[in-house]
Nucleic acid binder design. Sequence first.
DNA 1: TTTTGAGTTGTTCGA
DNA 2: GTCGAACAACTCAAA
Length: 444
Amino acid sequence: MWFRRDLRLIDNPALLAAIEAGQEIVPVFILDPKLIDITGAKGLAYLANSLQCLDQSLNNKLHVYAGDPLEVLKDVKKKYDATSVHIQAEYDRYAVERDSRIEAAGIELTRTGSPYAVAPGRVKKPTDATNYRVYTPFYRAWLVHGWRAAVSAPKSIKAVTPDPSDRNFPQWKAPEGTEIPKAGEKAAHERFKKFKAKAIDSYDESRNFAGIDGTSKMSTHLTWGEIHPRTLLTGLGESKAHDTFRKEIAWREFYADVLYNYPHTDKDYYAPQFANMRYDEPGEKFKAWCEGKTGYPFVDAGMRQLIKEGWMHNRVRMVVASFLAKDLHIEWQHGALFFEEHLVDFDVASNAHGWQWTAGCGTDASPYYRVFNPIEQGKRFDENGDYIRKYVPELAHLSADQIHEPWDADGGYKNGYPKKLVEHSLERIESLARLEEIKVRNTE
DNA sequence: TTTTGAGTTGTTCGA
DNA sequence: GTCGAACAACTCAAA
């Protein structure tokens, strides 16, 4: 059983298939240098913790190796005389290439299940069997398609006892000053239980408020497959709040489906005309954005939350992304890469397409004139400034009336908070002008 | 085949 | 302060 992004026992059909296939399983995780290279320090620390949790639930039978997955699998197969290799399917470009390379070298991979309720590529338009490019119709068809019921954890697991040389657990720690979420299958279920008890019934409203713990925070658990989306969908009702939550799960599935159908859009423009737009090079302004020093309190609070926790409230992700794309005129890929380095819940499809949506070049993208106002967004979704106060201590002394516009407050800058990097109202106009240019160019 | 109308997440302006 | 209209044009599902 080769664990990848399915670090769980509950509702893991691939694990059940592996158990079914033989006398004993060899539970394996491979530290792939290529994936480690592109994962940030907080993400690696989270993974290290999650592997410890998985090992614990496997009674210390998890085998952990570092190296190229093909070479590791060859060695493991030989060492244990393994009869089959079981995996949960994966669909992003790197995973597909890796898995095909392994199979081309003669190691057959038995795929059971996927990280989604409905695997990418399955939802098709009934008219012409092509994929959807608009969310709402996708959502309807996805519901009609439906998904299998969740399966239980195996009753018992007979696993080979590893040698010390099979136990190369990484020792990655979260960087000084950071606080990453609790990892593991157990933590995922505990958090979801708490969400269901406390927040889910007001989810449609409270999910937008940055200072409220109103979201499920399932993203990181989903990234590593500590919980399966089917588990989250089980037992949801028809209320507006429950429907909104179900739709968020479906967004993850929609973007996975889109990336599956357009694999290049992990790095390239989905709407190619946006490649012709005028952009600014990422220089000092980009650096200020990365550090949470733009001078716009809501934006800076978000970036600092990202740096500290490896997670950012969804509402604020949109605001900081809009700010990079439309106030600083920097290509979305730079922001997406920074997110990749810092997010513990990094998911290539959701990240790339969330960014492209905000930048206006994605599927079902926001209309060109929709430019988030970072000040108004702060006033609306962090009304009394609690979120800003938590992450931007230089502004903690300001009242709710002052905190969103420190430039108008007495002593707003006394703690060294940076001045505004750009003037939003002017950059908004500049952004609209640049969009106008590609429109003209495309009709030439 | 043609037509219709909707499309995650917004902002600004003027009445 | 509130409210509705305007902000483009286009894609694409669905009637």
